[in-house]
Structures are given as C-alpha cells and as structure tokens.
Design a binder for these strands. Structure first.
Length: 241
DNA sequence: CGCCTTTGACCCGCGC
DNA sequence: GCGCGGGTCAAAGGCG
C-alpha cells in the first residue's frame, strides 16, 4: 500500500507461525532517515496486510504521508484522551474499552493484538479504494505518544489494511457495530472523530470520500444500543476470565 | 550503469 | 553454553 513515502527494501524473513514472508523497509526519502517499516500478510487472512512503522522521519513529508500521520496522531489523541480520564488513574487506556475493540479485531477482520508493553495503534485501512488513501478507522491503541512524523521518541505504529473491494463484508460488521456502540456511549469519542475527519478534509481533494467517511462514523448502530452494550459487557467478562 | 530486490549469512537477544 | 528466532547486512542478480 502506498503511504506517500519512498521505501527501500533491505530484508525479508519468514517468521515462525506465519508462512507469509515479512519484508523490511527503510525510509528512502531523507538522508539517514531512521524510519523503518515491516510488512507482512496476516496468517489467518492473507488479504490483510500488517504494516509496522518504527521511528520518526527527520525530513518533511509529502501531503499523503502527512495525512496519514495526522490521522494517526488524532486517533492516538482520541484514545489517549480516554486514558487520561479513566477512573483508575492509570496511564494506559480504559481496559474495558480496549478489550471490546481487541475482541472485535480477533474476529479475523484485523488479527493483530497490541501488547501493553509496546506502544501501538492499530488502524483499519479497508476503506482504501481507487488507489486513493482514505481515512482509516482506529481499532485500538495503547500508544502513549502521538505520531506526527517528526523527531520525537522512538515509537511503533501498527497499521493493518485489506485489499480494495473486500468490504463491506459480514466478517467486519461486528467491528462496525462495536465501534458504533463505543461512539454512542461516549459523545467525546464522536467529537474526536469529527475533528479528525474535519482535519483530513483540509488535506484531501476527494470530498466524496469525506462524505462516505462521515456516514461510516454515523453513530446509528444496526443493533439496539442495549443489545450492543450487553455484548460489550459479555466480551469484557470473557476476556477478563 | 545505477538503482532496487532478492536471499543467504551473520549478529544479537532470549529462553532453557 | 546452546539453540532458536527475529532483525540486519551485503553480495549477486534483475531491470529500466
């Protein structure tokens, strides 16, 4: 998937537990840019590409890359804001919220599991189509620092994507419902998403994409809110057990 | 000819 | 100390 940056491949390995090789890339845009990324197909669903970014660019980014960076940063801020308001006072995000999201990711839609020890954010890029980058949907994050694409502390950014024309499909409807329920439960979440979309609109010329995304985030769950909340509680209990 | 990818070798951390 | 696995290096080959 093109992300606006130029990458130079420097290695490929077959990781244990996944027959698909993992490719290693370095950013080739700046002089001695420290940013690296890993790309690997999901072992469960080979249409899913798991891309891991590490480091921070030491050069300016093209508009497309900036859009991704700002989007990711906004997503991180969104989840981070929840962590700072959590009642237990921890620096990590609301465990109930993330357990719900992680459980939805385990349905084969985006089979990636962020660990608490590694700062990560997982984004669903399945809305990518017509070779035009669109706004990714944040699935989960336990990252403690936003990604701006400029020198900061070392960090890792995890992105997952599917090939075009793969959705909407039944397998990820559950995720949509969970996200919708999360938005319905927390008005601040919807406000954060609106801010992200508004920010993206300034960077993109594709107004149609914007409209599509706004409709994607419309908090009108296909199920009643009571049913969704019950499922979330059930999911939380099963994970905790 | 230069750039990029491929791929086997090597390095290093971690668990036993 | 040894083996395993992940990450990186670098020579060789392909391609424009």
């Amino acid at each position: 998937m093109g992300d606006g940056c130029q990458w130079r491949k420097y290695g490929q390995k077959i990781a244990k537990g996944n027959p698909c090789p993992r490719a290693y890339y370095r950013c080739n845009m700046g002089t001695s840019c420290p940013v690296r990324k890993q790309v690997q197909r999901c072992a469960v669903d080979e249409t899913v590409l798991i891309t891991t970014y590490e480091g921070n660019h030491n050069h300016s980014l093209p508009p497309t890359a900036k859009s991704i960076a700002s989007t990711t940063s906004a997503a991180l801020d969104m989840f981070l804001s929840r962590s700072t308001t959590s009642s237990n006072g921890t620096t990590l995000s609301n465990p109930s919220f993330f357990s719900s999201l992680s459980s939805s990711a385990s349905t084969g839609f985006a089979t990636f599991y962020p660990s608490a020890s590694c700062p990560t954010v997982t984004l669903d890029l399945t809305q990518n189509s017509n070779n035009c980058f669109q706004f990714p949907r944040a699935i989960s994050s336990n990252h403690l620092q936003p990604f701006h694409g400029y020198p900061q502390q070392s960090e890792a950014l995890y992105l997952s994507s599917k090939l075009p024309n793969m959705i909407p499909s039944e397998e990820n409807l559950g995720l949509v419902e969970v996200i919708s329920a999360a938005i319905a439960k927390d008005p601040s979440l919807k406000a954060a998403l609106d801010a992200v979309v508004s920010s993206l609109t300034r960077d993109t010329q594709n107004i149609n994409n914007h409209c599509q995304l706004r409709s994607e985030y419309d908090p009108s769950p296909k199920m009643s809110e009571e049913v969704v909340q019950h499922q979330l509680c059930t999911t939380d209990e099963s994970i905790q057990s």
